[in-house]
Design a protein around this nucleic acid. Sequence first.
RNA 1: GCCGACGUAGCUCAGCUGGUAGAGCACUUCACUCGUAAUGAAGGGGUCCCCGGUUCGAGUCCGGGCGUCGGCUCCA
Length: 594
Amino acid sequence: DGEKVHFLTTRDTSDPDALYVLRHSTAHLLAEAVMRLHPGVKIAIGPPIAEGFYYDFEFPEPISEADLEAIEEEIRREISEGREWTREQLSREDAIARFEAEDQPYKVELAREAEGAISLYTQGAFTDLCRGPHLQDATPIKAVKLTSLAGAYWRGDEKNTQLTRIYGTAFYSQADLDAHLERLEQARARDHRRLGTQLDLFHLSDHSPGSPFGHPKGMVLWNGLEDLRRRENRRRGYLEVKTPLLYDIRTYITSGHYDNYRENMFFVQPHEGEEPLALKPMNCPGHMLLFGSQLRSYRDLPIRYAESSTLHRDERGGTLHGLLRVKHITQDDAHVFVTEEQIQDEIDGMIDFVNYLYERFQVTPRAELSTRPENRLGTDEQWDRAEGALEAALRRHQLDYVISPGEGTFYGPKIDLHMTDVLGRSWQMGTIQLDYQMPVQFGLTYMGADNREHAPVVIHRALLGSLERFLGILIEHYGGEFPFWLAPVQALVIPVGENHREAGRALRDELVGGGFRVEVDDRDETLGRRVRDAELQKVPFVVVYGDREAEAARAWREFAQLAVRERGGEQSTLSLVELLERFRELAAEADPPG
RNA sequence: GCCGACGUAGCUCAGCUGGUAGAGCACUUCACUCGUAAUGAAGGGGUCCCCGGUUCGAGUCCGGGCGUCGGCUCCA
């Protein structure tokens, strides 16, 4: 009608909008197929999404994944039969009447809430409420695949009916679909759970669900994060503290967590008939008690308590995921007690800190400002100030951010940093939370210059977030190919034959003595085999020692010449001195000057 | 917590309509002593997730539980 496109005319299959329209139209074919195969089904809504489309239905009988095959077959039949889309426009009342007559309550609800006239698209026996645009006909749909089945709540609210969601994807050619499936497989190869087993980093066990077992190599990575955390905290005026794991319930009633998060807390009953103790799910109350244990002066502030302690959160079943969502969680946590005037500087410093940390791994998180939720403590005026302070800091650092209304914690707004895993899912990493409430709940004060008691403001922050989660994301980010400074085994020495084993071990000792993580592989295997294994373990350097190197040692001195192979295959000849120098340069990336 | 799927050797997986469990890799031993992504041979290894039921007989069928996975919801 001159303002809006109702039908797709392009055949440029590389155009993302074209793909979007193709998938949207395929979703309508799906709905038509489902209606024919499952009479009485109620149809909800089916938008295109990043990688495909989905459609939500309320089936009269439960269906299983096995049923998808028949539905997929039916879609193909529709395409081969031919489908054309037609558009009509109705008034809201007419649309409601029409869907009521068809006994489609979800459509009725959507039509009721629509503004202005309503457009309907029809293909074959199926008419749907839809903004469009659509394909003109189904002939360009060359590849369709229904990928999975899931429950999804109507309008995303778990108080509503749970509908059955069918996911699928569609392409302009079979080759494009194959390429898509190939990309998914490649992404799965980087999955931290797969690499965790392959590289012997960690494992999960039924004996303690959601609580990863850190293997020696995984712990090298873990300690790399811990070292980074400790070193930078020390440089930035944070004070390392240690607070208990078990508390009386009263502590968590005071903090407000008992009322808000009790169902996700673990409780320990020491003996029959005794009061249970709360296993800490976060460090805040401990740090509050620590602050309150002494008289504080405004001259002491800011006080920055840092602790990376083990926390336990009893996450809802069905939400655990490898290292990315665990019950046993460790945060690079800190609580900073400040005066109102110190808030801006402190948050500025934290954002600098965040930038420094994430640059170490060449990753860029997305920032999100989460504002006041419905269920909250404190006055609107306090929330105005707190939200304003966080937003001002984001602006000053010219960080791109989105606002998530209502996503703040019950005690304050927060800046969250998000990253994406190999499956394209977003995870919250670091968080900076401004809190006017908890210090008051705990009765914390400091003596001001005016010789009066004032309540401090607390900034909660975990910059990497959960160390478990950060490690998981990091494994996927590097695909297991960790930079030299972080790699669990930095170099592997391979003596060619039996006669070279002694020299190989001596070389290993030299490199270990230089402060590096080096192992020797003197198994009875061929050189090719051992190089292959080193590549599969993604070891950054392999040093081969055989007759040639032994000869150079006799002619000049030991380790005057070494055959060095870098991950990926590049080879060079270096002396031990040169190799150590190379290692030192690479290791310095952990903490570059400036 | 909800919907769907899955759980078999250390790992990845096969096992048809119920008849007493298999492959590759890994591991052990022997031979080979090797020049940059897989040397050969032999051998060991299993409460088929747990509990209950059906059956002459259950890895396989049924029920319950636990765990894992893909979503939904939640995430201090």
